[in-house]
Simulated scan of single mutants.
Amino acid sequence: MSEPQMFNTRSGNAVIVALDHGLSLGAPEGFKTPEETLDKVLEGDPDGVVVGPHFARHYKERLKAADADLVLTADVVTWSTSPGRDHGSDLWTPAFNTELLQDLSPSGVKIVLVFGRDDEETFRRNIEYVSHLSEELRGTGIPLVVEPVMWGERIPDGLETDSEYVADALRMGWEFGADILKAPYTGSVDTFEPIVSNSPVPVMILGGPASGSTKAMLETVEGAIEAGARGLMIGRTIWKSDNPTQTVAALRQVVHEGATVNDIWN
C-alpha cells in the first residue's frame, strides 16, 4: 500500500482526534453535546478525526468544511448491555458492513484487537475480523488501523503499557493485516523506539482513559514522536480538556513542528 492519505502533511505525521466514544459510552461527560464538541475540536485544525460511520453521516458538512481526514470505527466494544454503563462485561462485535464504510470515502478504518480476554471465543472472533477486514479493504486504498490494547483480565494490573506486551501485540497486529497501528505508549523513548523501528507499518499512539494533565499528555506525544511514531489518535484527554481547541493546536506544534512541551505549554 502507498503512503496513507492521513500522512500527507508537511511533517509526514498526523494529529487525529478520536471522537467515536458515543459507540461505547453513550453521552459521556464532556461529550454530551456532539456538535459543540466537534466544533471545538475542528477549530484547532486537526488532520483528521476518528468517528463512527453514522456520526460521519450526520455531521458530514461540518467535517467536509474542516477538510479533516475521516477514520471510521468499524466495531464496538462496550462493558454493559445497559446504555453507557460499565458492569464489567466484555462485549465486542463487528458493527458496520464494509460497503457502508467504503461509501463514506474514509482515509482509514479502525478496529480494536483486545488482548488478555477470559473469553477465548471472543478473542478468536476478534482475530478473524482483523484479518477479514484487512482482506476486504486490500486494493481499495483505505488502510486498516488496528488498535492492539491490553484490556483483558489476564493482563496483570499495571502492564497495559509494558514494553514486552506492547511489542508482542503490535507484531501480531500487523501480522494479522494492520496497515497502521494505534498503540499504547510504553512510557519512554528508549523502550518505544525499538518497537516502532521494528514495525513495517506506521505506528501512532492512543490516549487511553483521560487522566492526569493536558501537559502530561503532550509530553507523552513529544516522547512518542521522538521515538519515531507518526502521530496520534487520542480522544478523551483532548475533548475533556479545559480548551479542546487550544489542546489540538498545541498537539499540532509538537507533531508537525517538533516543538517541545516546555516551550508551548505552561
Rank of each mutant, 00 (worst) to 15 (best):
S11T: 10
L159T: 15
Y129I: 05
G139K: 02
I111Q: 07
D86S: 13
G187N: 04
E257A: 11
G116M: 14
A18C: 09
P194M: 02
R171P: 03
G52D: 10
N13D: 10
T81K: 11
S2R: 11
G208R: 02
L232D: 00
P53V: 09
V149M: 12
I180M: 06
D242R: 11
P194R: 03
T98Y: 01
R85P: 02
L38A: 06
E153V: 11
T260M: 07
F31A: 14
A169V: 09
V189Q: 04
L72F: 11
L181M: 14
E219G: 07
R57H: 12
H256Y: 06
S105E: 15
E136A: 10
V50L: 15
V196W: 00
D69A: 09
S163E: 14
N13R: 15
I205G: 01
Q246V: 06
R154D: 05
P106M: 12
A74W: 06
L144I: 07
G223R: 04
T78M: 10
K64N: 13
E147G: 09
I238H: 03
E35D: 15
L137E: 02
S80G: 03
T161M: 05
V203G: 03
G177E: 10
I16T: 09
D75R: 00
W239M: 01
E29A: 14
A27T: 14
K240C: 10
E128Y: 08
K182G: 00
R171W: 12
E222G: 02
D67P: 01
S2D: 13
S163W: 12
F96A: 04
N262T: 08
V261P: 07
E193V: 02
E175Q: 14
P106D: 09
V15K: 00
P94W: 12
I142F: 00
S107A: 15
V166P: 00
Y59S: 06
E99I: 13
G44A: 15
K182F: 04
I16G: 00
M1G: 14
L72H: 03
D86L: 05
R154E: 14
H21I: 08
Q102P: 00
S134M: 05
E257S: 08
D190Q: 13
E153P: 15
A178L: 02
N266G: 09
L91R: 03
V201M: 05
V71D: 04
D118E: 14
V76F: 05
P244V: 07
P244Q: 05
S89V: 08
I142R: 00
D179G: 09
V201Q: 03
G22E: 06
T33G: 04
G88M: 07
L63D: 03
D157M: 13
R117K: 13
I127Q: 11
A18Q: 03
M204A: 05
G116T: 10
I264C: 03
T186S: 02
P34R: 10
V189N: 05
V17F: 07
A74T: 07
I127M: 12
D118W: 07
I195G: 04
D263C: 04
Q102R: 15
